[in-house]
Structures are given as C-alpha cells and as structure tokens.
Design a protein around this nucleic acid. Structure first.
Length: 414
RNA sequence: CGGGGCGUGGCUCAGUUUGGCUAGAGCGCUUGCUUUGGGAGCAAGAGGCCACAGGUUCAAGUCCUGUCGCCCCGACCA
C-alpha cells in the first residue's frame, strides 16, 4: 500500500483529549479518532490491527472446538426481564422503545440471547456439548468512558458460550478456553497475569481474569513473585501472600479477558433444558468467555512502546514492513524502492510504501511512531555503495546489506 | 451521578485576573525559491459565528446566568 493512497493522519503533538500512553499513541499515529466520549472510528491502520487480532482469536477459538455465530445487537428487553438482569445491569444498558412500542435494548453482553437460542434448538443430551462464539459490537452506557479504547461505550468483544450436559463437561471446556486464551494473548505480544476473580453481575461460582500489567491500567492486582500468584485487589485485601506470607506487589492492570463457570443461572432462568440418557429433564450447564477485542489494541500498545512510538508485535502489525525512499524525486532511489516493493508484494508480504514527498526526518519520525516492525531505508548514503538499510523497530538494530541480499534479510525477520 | 479542570483556525496553546480599537503565536495547509539521512529556512497566502443561548454595558474572547461538550478523581466493567 502507498502512503498517499491510504489515510494516515499522524500528529506531531498529543491531542488534549488523550490521557493514557496508548490513547496518545493511537491518536498521534492516525490509527483511531474519537467521535464522542466512548465512541471511536477506526482508520485504515487501526482497522488492520483490529482485523489481525480478530484473525488470531478466530484461529484459536476454531481450534479449540468453538463455532462462530453472529447475534443481534438489537434485543428485546423481555429476555433480560426473564433473568432479572435488566435490573442488575440498570442504566449501563441502552434502552429505547421502537415505533410499535416494543421495549428494545442494545446488547451489553449476550448470555440471554444465546441461551434463548439454545433453549429453542437443543433438547437432547445428544446435541451437547456445543460451544459458540462471536466477535461483535457491544454497547454499554458507561458512567465514565475513558482511556480511549480501554473503556468505551461502543466496543468490540469476543464472547464465547459453552453448553454442557454436566459439570465435567463444563470443566473440560473451561480448561480448553483457558489454554486458548493464553495462546491468544501470547500471540498478541502480551505478558499477562491470570487471577481468580469475582463473577459479579454475570453470576456463577468460578471465574478467572486475564490481566495485562500496565502503568495506566484501571485495575489493581496483588502479585506474589515467589509463588507466581496473582489476585484482584479489593479494599479488604491483605498485603501478604496467603501461601508463602511474602509481601505482594501491587500492579496496575488492564483486564483483557474474563471467563466464568456460569452453571445453570441462565438455563434455569430461561428454561434451556435437555433430556438426558435416562429421560430426565435437566438445565444445560453453561460457561461464558469474554475478550475485550478493541481494548486489546490499547493493552498491546501499553506494553509495547518507547519514546518514539508504538512497537507492534509481528502478528498484529498493520504492515509487516515499510519502505522509506528518502527522496521520491530521485529516479535511482525510486526504481530500487518500487522494485523491492513489488518483490516483497509477490512474496505475500504486506508492505507500506512511504511515497510522500517529505524530508527524511519526517519519514523516520512517522515510521517509528507507526511501529511497523521492519523499516527498509533507501537513501543516497548507502545507495552509492549499492547498499540498502533494514532497521528493526523494536531493537533499533540496523542491517546494511547489498540489494541482492536484502530480501533474504527481511524474510529472516518477518 | 457527586467533586474538580478545560472549551479561542485542522493540532498545541497565549490573550480572560483588571471589558476597549483590525483576535495572536507555533505546528500543519497552499504557492514560489533555497535546502535535503532524524519532524528545514525565507517570502507570500488561505483558514476564526473566540463551544452554544440569553443577559449586563457606549463597548464582551474577557463580566453574569443557563446549556452542551471534553478531561481528571470516585462507584461500574471486557
């Protein structure tokens, strides 16, 4: 892709509205723009990152046996009244009345909707277990949206739901999800802590949170280095580890995932029952598994940046490499740059080509800001010796090599 | 929702305390010349209902009242 053909409005200064590091960098690098508090537009680069995260999630969900669905954001309030959660959730749920006078809400989450789907389509133990997931936009009228994508009123979540015959089945699915989550976060370049947590308004007994330690995180986790144990901090939390008695570290974290063993709360409330092998009518045993997809973008940046900008992990980067011809009026430079672009393109490597008529300094600054892993720098200095430069964004390492060998150097690092 | 801060060209801000003449700067944008490996220099331009509404006054970006928006601190959460 050519820079001048796409839309990358970078900023030199931090916008006034930005608070956290990730929010500032997302805005400065032209990945997102705010429409209003809690609602963001994804620009071309931001959307590419979002799609990369979704691709990873889909791969890991599919390989742990879940099937993708897409449920409506538009929902009848009556389903929420059946479980009583319309009161628990309260004003966080956006409600309105349609032209027929029907009470509608925008889904803040989907337990009721998916349970209702299972209720009307599953009636035998032979149809269980089933695990479904979706990647979808949720709406929550947050009391205080903040930190850009971290707490938005409209955001993208991956939510999965498991339906089992018995507790053993639930345990198995829960464990499989737990492992899949670890893979997803690791592929996203995140170091995470997992904590046993409160299930809050979701209900159920067991739940785990996936926490990303980050300076601007809203949650606090107590972490024991010796036991490698983390738990969510609460007012009445004690400052020392229950297992070894050691003093615990207090870490600010961003919650990026939360999984719950729901049990039968929703299946009982909505009548999602099945007949077991003995002809006995039983409620389906449920689990639910969430990942804050859009929030992950911010969490990844919080953990992967330096003074110059973002440092994208390979799998998330909007482009794997970038080509910086330092003088677009120089025929030799442009011929070489375009030749490399075509060669990489033909190898299936997604490359951003900075074809702007800008000075070298501007291109360097913007390239570092965007955080694309590899920068291929084509300028007079090295070209006179028939050499090109490859800069690795994360380490600032520079590989200077002959034109004939540079593609090999790139392939090694991609 | 309670407490605090802010709102002035696309972006960052000065000017508001103590009302006064054609509303400023830097960045960005347009044109020209010079430059050209880490956000260039000079020159000439374009771009503003000073958040909105009402009020006080001879006169309001500046004072008063109300509204809206954004940010920060608290309760909520992926």
């Amino acid at each position: 892709m050519f820079w001048t053909k796409t839309f990358i409005p970078t900023l030199k200064e931090n916008p006034q509205e930005a608070d956290s590091v990730s929010h500032k960098l997302l805005l400065r690098s032209g990945f997102v723009r705010m429409l209003m508090a809690g609602a963001y537009s994804y620009l071309p680069l931001g959307l590419k990152v979002l799609n990369n995260i979704q691709r990873i999630i889909r791969e890991e969900m599919n390989s742990c046996g879940a099937s993708e669905v897409l449920l409506p954001a538009l929902q009848p309030l009556e389903l929420w009244q059946k479980t009583g959660r319309d009161k628990d959730i309260g004003e966080v749920m956006i409600r309105f009345v349609d032209r027929r006078g029907r009470k509608i809400c925008l889904g803040p989450t989907h337990e009721e909707i998916i349970t209702d789907l299972i209720r009307s389509n599953v009636s035998s133990y032979r149809q269980l277990p089933v695990v479904l997931y979706q990647i979808q936009t949720k709406f929550r009228d947050e009391i205080r949206p903040r930190f850009g994508l971290i707490r938005a009123c409209e955001f993208i979540m991956k939510d999965a739901y498991s339906f089992d015959r018995d507790e053993q089945g639930l345990d198995k699915n829960y464990q499989a999800m737990f492992e899949a989550y670890k893979k997803i976060f690791s592929r996203c370049g995140l170091r995470i802590l997992t904590t046993e947590a409160d299930s809050g308004v979701m209900g159920g007994k067991v739940s785990h949170e996936f926490m990303v330690p980050a300076k601007d995180g809203e949650d606090v986790v107590l972490f024991c280095k010796r036991c490698n144990l983390a738990k969510t901090f609460k007012e009445d939390s004690t400052g020392s580890c229950k297992v070894c008695g050691q003093e615990q570290e207090k870490l600010n974290c961003i919650e990026v995932g939360h999984i719950f063993k729901l049990g039968t709360k929703y299946s009982v409330g909505l009548g999602a029952n099945f007949l077991d092998a003995h002809g006995k009518l039983l409620p389906v045993i449920m689990g639910c598994y969430g990942i804050g997809v859009s929030r992950l973008i911010s969490a990844v940046i919080e953990q992967n940046n330096d003074a110059d900008g973002i440092i994208w992990p390979k799998e998330l980067a909007p482009y794997r490499a970038m080509i910086l011809p330092l003088d677009v009026t120089d025929v030799k430079i442009m011929d070489l740059s375009l030749g490399l672009y075509k060669e990489l393109h033909d190898l299936g490597i997604d490359v951003l080509f900075d074809d702007r008529d800008e000075r070298a300094g501007v291109k360097f600054k913007d390239a570092d800001l965007l955080g694309i892993p590899l920068q291929l720098i084509i300028g007079k200095n090295s070209l006179k010796d028939n050499l090109v430069e490859l800069k690795v964004r994360s380490t600032k390492e520079k590989i200077i090599s002959p034109r004939a060998e540079i593609v090999q150097e790139i392939k090694k690092r991609i």
